[in-house]
């Protein structure tokens, strides 16, 4: 068993990293790992309420995010400073998360065996 953190920093839809990163989380949930996800910098937009990619023809994933917990990713942290910098608040976030400061992220990071950036 490993403690694995997914560190998401990229905005959704402009590139595929956020989506393919989420696919990794969903698969890893089937294995005996302890998973955590962090959303900071532009990745906070991956959690934004009201996303609608239908006009782009890109598969959206806001409907997939609520199942993260069912797939074994019980810890989901969002960095407050990243939200603040983008004019966002807790009300903008579509799923239950913990909004934390940089230090809380650093502490959780220090406990990990592996950190996968997306």
């Amino acid at each position: 068993m490993a403690k694995i953190m997914f560190l998401n920093r990229k905005a959704p839809h402009g590139s595929i990293y956020a989506w393919e990163g989420l696919e990794v989380v969903l698969i890893f949930g089937a294995f005996d790992n302890e998973l955590a996800a962090v959303y900071m910098d532009d990745a906070v937009f991956s959690l934004k309420k009201g996303q609608d990619t239908s006009e782009l023809g890109i598969k959206g994933f806001i409907q997939t995010l609520p199942v993260l917990e069912d797939y074994g990713c019980e810890t989901i942290l969002v960095e407050k400073e990243s939200l603040d910098a983008r004019g966002m608040t807790a009300d903008d976030i579509a799923i239950p998360v913990q909004i934390v400061d940089a230090e809380a992220i650093a502490n959780l990071m220090a406990e990990q065996d592996v950190i996968l950036p997306f």
């Binding site: 068993m1 490993a2 694995i4 698969i27 890893f28 089937a30 065996d113 592996v114």
Partner: peptide
């Protein structure tokens, strides 16, 4: 092969570098 291989690598390797 599948992402399970990456999971296995995370579990078995001493270091995983991206």
């Amino acid at each position: 092969s599948g992402l399970g291989q990456l999971s296995e690598m995370c579990t078995e390797a001493d270091r995983l570098i991206t």
